[in-house]
Every structure is written in C-alpha cells, then in structure tokens.
Nucleic acid binder design. Structure first.
Lengths: 338, 338
DNA sequence: CTGAAAGCGCTTACAG
DNA sequence: CTGAAAGCGCTTACAG
C-alpha cells in the first residue's frame, strides 16, 4: 500500500495525509489523530526510500566497525543504549563492517555520497585521528564518543578517564601502596593516554617514582591481564596494587594472582574499570572487585539524544560533556600486607 | 554529485553509467572499467534512496534486538561475521532496538511496509515462536539463526545443540561421573530445549537417574552460574561434574567452586559451551576449561552468505544446516575423585 | 486548513 | 552496445 492508495481509501488527499503523518502544524489536530489511527490500523508506513529521496534525509545514523576492533562487549552495550533512544523517533542504526582504518574512511565516503545515513558516530579516537577532519570535509555530521587530543568544532561526550585513574591511584597510595601496576588500553587511544596521565600525576603529586615496567598497554582481553600480571609478579619488587583497564583484563589479573598462590585484597589490591555489563559483575566476584565505574549504555543513550538534536537541525557543534566516574570500593582493595 | 552530473562530466549517458555501475552485461567491459575507475576517482556513489525507490530494494538487511535480550556478547560476534560477509556486496545492517517481543513484531511491520530492508535475521527462537509465521504473512524474507520446533518453509542454520550436550554428558559418564549438574540457557529457548534433551538422553542411555535439582535454566550471566553451582554444592549429594551453557556461567561456576574450597578438574569437573570470544578464552583459564565449541562469528558469515543468495533471487527457502560442535577436552575434566 | 503538481535521483523497458 | 524518457512514492512550495 502506498500513499496514494492509503489516502484514497480514507478519502483524503495525499498532501494532507503526508503532512499529518509528519506532524506538520497545518493539519487540524483532530484530522491528524484520525489519520494516525487509520494508518496504524491499515498498517501504512511511508516508503522510506521515497521519503528519503524527497527530503534528502535517510532517517538512520551510521556506525562503522572494524572487524578487529569495535566488536567488544563495550560496543554492544553502547548500541543498546543508543538504539533505545533512537527508537523513540524511529531512527535506525546502520552498521557497516570494514577491515581496517582505510576501509573505515572509504565507508564514510560511500555513506555520505549515497546519503544512506544522516550522521555517524565515531568512537575510540586515537591520538592522531584523521577521521574528524575527514568527516568534516565530507560534510557528514557526527558525534564523537570519546574526545580528540585537539577538539575542533564538533560535539563529543567522554568520561573523565584522567580523573578516574588519578583518583583510583591516589586512593591506593593513600592507603599505603608504593608500587602500583597499571594495565591500560592500547597505546595511541586517547582514553588510554588520559588514564596514563592520571596515573602519573597521582604518583608525582605524592612523590612516588614512575616505573616503566609497571605499566602495560593492550587490548581489553583476559589474556593481556593475565600476562601483564605475571610479568609484574616476576619483578624483583612486584607492585602491591594493580589498576586494570577493563573487567576482562581484571579477570586475567585475578587468575594470575591465584596461580601465584596469592590472595587478592590481601597480598595484592585491584581496582578495575567497569563499563557495566550485566553478564560480568564486579559485585559477584570473590573477592568483590573495586572499580571505577561508568555505564557504556548510558553514554549510548546520551549520544542518541545529541544525534536527535542534530537531526532536528539544532546546532550542537560546540557541545561537549565530560562525565565523572565513580570510584566504588570493594574487597579487592586493602592496605599493603605490611 | 548526482548521476546526471557525473555522467555529463565524463561524457556518457546516464543510462550507460548506471548500467556500468550495476554490472549489467550490456555495457562493453572496457567501458565499464573506465566508468568504474572514474566513479572511484570522483567519488560518485548512487543515491541509495533513489536507487531503492527505482528498484524496490533497500540494499540492507535488518536485525531487531530487544533491549533486555540480544545485547549479549554472542550477538556482537555474530554481527561481526555477518557484517564482514555483507560488506563484500555493500549490503548494510540495519539495527532496530525494541523493548519487548511485541515491539519486535511492530518493528517488522514497519520495516516491511517502509521497505527499509530486503530481509531480516531472526535469532534465539523460542518453542512457540510466532515470528516466523508473522514474517511470512508480511512477505518479509528471513533467515533464522537457530531452528524452530516446527520448521516450515524457510532457511535456517543451527548448531547441533543436542549432539554437543549428549556427547559431553556421555563423556563425563564414561569417565566415571554419576551425578552431573547442568546449567542451561533460558527455559523456552529452543536451543536450551535441545540441550536438555541431549543431557537426558545420555543419562538414560547409560542408566543414570535424572535429578530435577541438578538442572537449572537462566540467562548467560556469571551470577546465574555462581548461584546454580552454590545450590548444587549444597545438595546432600552434590554433582561431581557440571555442564555450563556459556563461558559467562562457567566463570560463575569456577568462582563457586573456589569459594567452597574445592578444586576444579579434581573435585569437580566442568565442560562449558564456548561461542568463541577473543576476550575470554577457555585455554587461558586456570585450570584450562573443557568446552563444546562453535564459533558464533562463523555462523554470522554463513548467514551472510545465505542472505546474499536470497537477495540475488535464489530460492533458499528449504535450505537448512546443522553444524557439528567440537568437544575440546582440557584440564577441567577428570574422573571423579575416587 | 486542504489540494494539484513539480521534483527528488535513480533504474530499466523500449527504441535504435 | 547506447540513449531518451517514464516511473518509482514520497514531500512541499505554491495556490486557493
């Protein structure tokens, strides 16, 4: 059923029906209600391609994911939040999977030229990120989840990675730890850079030395946590506390600690960053794990908000938010064993 | 730049350019090559809405995800595989997030009526699944990941859940276990039903009783594994081996075993189902965990194949595949402690 | 507040 | 093998 047929079947002109469904003010409220109800009953929905062609808007936002990256649990949580927000306006999410960074740029070019999406979401910015400039040149609107080193005229939302790790490190020092290991995200990722800085600042402020061999960088997978922790434990003077960049690396740390016959929360303290997944819960670990906590899902919801404003034509180009991160203390942190 | 402008700028008619880009055989190979190269250079991509309107095809496939369900790591892995396959044909994935089952049906209706996608992917079928019949009525092509109890005339791909658990259970019995716990997926999910059946058949064949209190059903989250295992351990005669439906529940089981002061692979044996994530690896656990293994990502790739065939007009309505599941034995399984 | 009609940018049957 | 033109189903400026 198309507009013509639908309009005819309810005895109205195409113009009026179209305007009623799009919520234009020219239509009498009562008329709109009736048309809305009838469209529901008869199951009429405008052909999205036709509407897109006429308006120049796609009614969808894009996310480009690299196969090797971007398919971690974080992305899923983020999309759940984003989608739940966009659903209210019937904006869909278009996923494009690419192989590498170069493929990502090509994908943006195609999405822009073919007008498949009205905006895209960028995530996991790196220190020298070319994507923001690239999208600007394409005139493709975007919101960045995370932030650049150099933030031009575009909207972004990030958590306070610096503050979170600064605070966690400071806390560990304050309860007596003098050697603190750090298992961070991949080198080059802006968030990991900020966490490094928070870590170093806390050490410096409290007059503790920075040890190169007590910091590692890598993907958020359990194996990286395990190996890093094993390396730490093999040092002549191992750390007495460790910061893990994710729950996945934290699981690896816990394993390494057990394997070494040590006890977490007694011999070794741990604070992990928790993006909040329902299937892995810091409160359910043994011992329960202290975390710096920030919900990925909520970030998705908020970025959905901003996108909707963007699509409504509002100027959000200078909008940015930095979300505070909670420090949740549980059993895995304690003063060092004398 | 639109077709008209692009065609003019390279001195060809719109018809020829359009046909060349769509790979129609009427265009001389040499001409097509030239046009293809020029379109790359000038960055011309057909407006997808216009193409969709003209052809009636959207160039995208849909997945509808419920907020409370479908945002687990499995879905992510599946999409990574699916997307990598569809990318080769520049077919995008349209994600629609809904609240509940009813919202899911409404979403299909909208996707069908507005011609936003050419086909959808159904996943996690339940015993009384109304979605297949619903989509047929809408004339919306689909592929089912999993299978129905009653499989009509539609394509599906599933793993051999029955066989996997039958084999794992049989193995445990063969090495001497007489009480085997089972932490299964949610009641009502077809895959969980099949696993139940495999479990029961193995017990029955070898003359072992089925104990109601040695089987639980629930979501694939660590907490479910933990609690189920604690319940098992509080039985007057606890199981000596356990099957966990996922790596997430297996983590919970491992925790409960440790909390009870027992040792996995000695006091308690464990076999977990592993959908293969790169961030949680059965080989890296302590002890390493025996698994029934099947790659979610590969399933995504294969379903992408089938969708592409579908979009190419091939009749795949009676296509189905059941994939065998590997049993990988590691340190977590051993004969019962005397 | 409502309607007739132009136009969005493609694809493809038809004619050559 | 190539081209002129109709038509896909909407939206929206314009006229009333």
């Amino acid at each position: 059923m198309n507009l013509k047929e639908f309009a005819k079947s309810i005895g109205m002109s195409q113009t009026t029906v179209s305007r009623a469904l799009s919520g234009y003010p020219e239509v009498k409220a009562e008329t709109r209600q009736r048309i809305l109800k009838l469209s529901q009953e008869l199951g009429y929905h405008p052909n999205r391609s036709a509407a897109g062609l006429a308006t120049g808007r796609a009614g969808a936002v894009g996310i480009v994911l690299r196969e090797s990256h971007g398919f971690d649990p974080n992305t899923t949580e983020f999309m759940a939040g984003l989608g739940s927000r966009l659903e209210t306006r019937q904006i869909d999410i278009l996923i494009t999977v690419v192989e590498d960074r170069e493929g990502e740029l090509t994908a943006y070019q195609r999405l822009a030229a073919s007008k498949r999406v009205d905006a895209v979401i960028l995530h996991t910015p790196v220190v020298d990120d070319e994507r923001m400039a690239f999208l600007k040149k394409l005139k493709m609107p975007f919101v960045l989840h995370g932030r650049g080193i150099d933030n031009g005229n575009f909207p972004w939302i990030d958590i306070d990675n610096f503050g979170a790790i600064y605070r966690a490190t400071s806390y560990l020092i304050d309860i007596g730890h003098k050697r603190i290991g750090m298992i961070n995200g991949s080198k080059g990722d802006v968030f990991a850079e900020h966490r490094d800085q928070g870590y170093r600042k806390a050490l410096k402020e409290r007059g503790l030395p920075f040890y190169e061999d007590m910091i590692t960088h890598g993907a958020f997978i359990d194996d990286v946590g395990y190996r890093s922790m094993q390396d730490f434990l093999s040092l002549s003077e191992p750390p007495t506390a460790v910061l893990a960049g994710s729950m996945m690396t934290a699981l690896g740390v816990m394993r390494a600690v057990r394997s070494a016959g040590l006890t977490l929360g007694r011999d070794i303290s741990l604070i992990a960053h928790d993006d909040v997944f329902n299937y892995i819960n810091a409160d359910n670990m043994v011992p329960t794990v202290s975390t710096t906590r920030s919900s990925m899902r909520e970030a998705g919801v908020r970025i959905g908000d901003i996108l909707l404003q963007m699509l409504a034509g509002r100027d959000v180009s200078s909008h940015s938010e930095v979300w505070p991160v909670e420090l949740v203390l549980r059993e895995s942190t304690a003063p060092p064993a004398s």
